[in-house]
């Protein structure tokens, strides 16, 4: 690892990987060398299910600016979702 910058969070939801949908239980966010994006360093976001092995991963590698835009969009969507957050899921 070259920066070792990684943040993890426990999450609940599903993601669609190479073999279809699967439950995601953790998100790993790192700022390090990407595997594919044409950047020296990228914001790498992996939605994973560790119990299902390394292949249970939905990955994106974003430029830092794109990461900021993603954060902004998520926060706006959550805010607009507003009161729905307080309601139990069905």
């Amino acid at each position: 690892m070259c920066t070792m910058i990684v943040e993890k969070a426990q999450i609940s939801g599903t993601g669609k990987g190479a073999k279809g949908w699967f439950p995601v239980s953790q998100v790993n966010v790192s700022f390090d060398h990407p595997a594919n994006a044409p950047l020296d360093h990228a914001l790498n976001i992996d939605f994973v299910n560790e119990a299902q092995g390394p292949g249970a991963r939905v990955a994106v590698e974003l430029s830092p600016e794109s990461g900021q835009e993603l954060v902004r969009a998520i926060l706006v969507a959550l805010e607009r979702g507003g009161s729905h957050l307080a309601q139990p899921s069905t």
Partner: peptide, 19 residues
């Protein structure tokens, strides 16, 4: 020891675990 799969998937797991 991180398990097996595509090299980038295995590397992502090791990266998340701090190397």
């Amino acid at each position: 020891r991180a398990g097996h799969g595509a090299p980038d998937d295995v590397a992502a797991k090791v990266r998340a675990d701090g190397g």
